[in-house]
């Protein structure tokens, strides 16, 4: 790199000058996520989306389960709850029902939300609970070292699938829609602007909303499957993702080397748990 000196002078600043510093717990930075992990990119999108919605920061609560994505709650400078493995949704259910002024976001990983927390996920969708669920899908349990999970594609290697996974994975948009979610979108970490717009769109909505983020895990998933670095995975998304709004979610399965169908699969309205509850009680009990 031989460049004129003037071009090599880049302003170096302290962390708290970063435009997102107000919504981050900068005293906990740098975060624990690996180099090339896409989790941070999803989080910048979330922060920017939140700012763009204008929803007061005090009225947003983030609930996480366990895992790499579970750490999101600990980095956001909002009311944030890091619960037990898979239980973010039921915790958030109580929080949202007790305090209807809050916009409650459950931000967690694929293993947390659709394996150990799978029952909570489908039932919360069935109830159309007022929750925005951001599910970061990296196809593996990253924090524990790359075990096979509920989204690991068939034939992908994992520390508990050394011969390749022989276990059908969940297709999260299909699962969410079949269970009753009202807003379902999928983006990769590379679709920053579209992801941000999707989050901005979903944040003020009511009902059970799911945004899946396909995210590189260079340390566990990519290494075991020889997929290269985080950047290589971003390039893979660039070459292999198809944007198809309103796509049939049954066609959104993710294979090891196949296409990743992205877009907004569903955006409808139906009464939420609270709508039904309030209406039913008012009809039955009268009065107020």
């Amino acid at each position: 790199m031989t460049k004129p000196a003037a071009h090599l002078e880049t302003a170096i600043v302290e962390q708290d000058t970063h435009p997102m510093a107000d919504l981050l717990r900068m005293d906990r930075m740098p975060h624990i996520w690996c180099s090339g992990c896409g989790l941070g990119t999803g989080l910048t999108c979330f922060i920017m989306a939140l700012k763009e919605t204008g929803i007061p920061e005090d009225k947003v609560a983030v609930v996480s389960g366990i895992g790499c994505t579970g750490r999101v709650a600990g980095y956001l400078n909002l009311d944030s709850f890091h619960t037990t493995h898979g239980r973010g949704i039921p915790f958030a259910t109580g929080l949202a029902l007790a305090n209807p002024d809050l916009r409650v976001v459950v931000y967690s990983g694929d293993g947390d939300l659709v394996a150990i927390g799978g029952n909570h996920f489908i039932h919360s969708a069935r109830r159309n609970m007022d929750l925005l669920v951001i599910c970061v899908n990296n196809f593996t349990y990253g924090m524990t070292g790359g075990q096979a999970g509920p989204t690991t594609p068939i034939s992908a290697k994992a520390s508990t699938a050394p011969y390749g996974s022989y276990d059908y994975p969940f297709n999260i948009p299909y699962l969410a829609i079949a269970s009753g979610a009202t807003y379902v979108a999928r983006w990769t970490s590379l679709h920053m602007r579209r992801l941000k717009n999707s989050m901005r769109e979903a944040l003020p909505k009511k009902g059970f909303r799911v945004i899946e983020i396909i995210c590189p895990c260079p340390t566990a998933f990519a290494r075991k499957n020889r997929l290269g670095s985080g950047l290589d995975l971003m390039k893979h998304y660039h070459d292999n993702s198809i944007i198809k709004h309103g796509a049939d979610p049954r066609e959104a399965d993710i294979d090891m080397n196949g296409k990743v169908v992205c877009g907004t699969f569903l955006d409808i309205e139906r009464p939420t748990f609270r709508d039904f509850q309030t209406e039913n009680i008012a009809t039955q009990l009268g009065g107020e």
Binding site: P90, T93, G94, A96, L97, H123
Partner: peptide
């Protein structure tokens, strides 16, 4: 949907 959810929901409600 189950007792894990029940216990967590009451914790969430308390913090709400």
């Amino acid at each position: 949907e189950d007792e894990m959810a029940s216990m967590n929901s009451i914790l969430g409600a308390a913090w709400g």
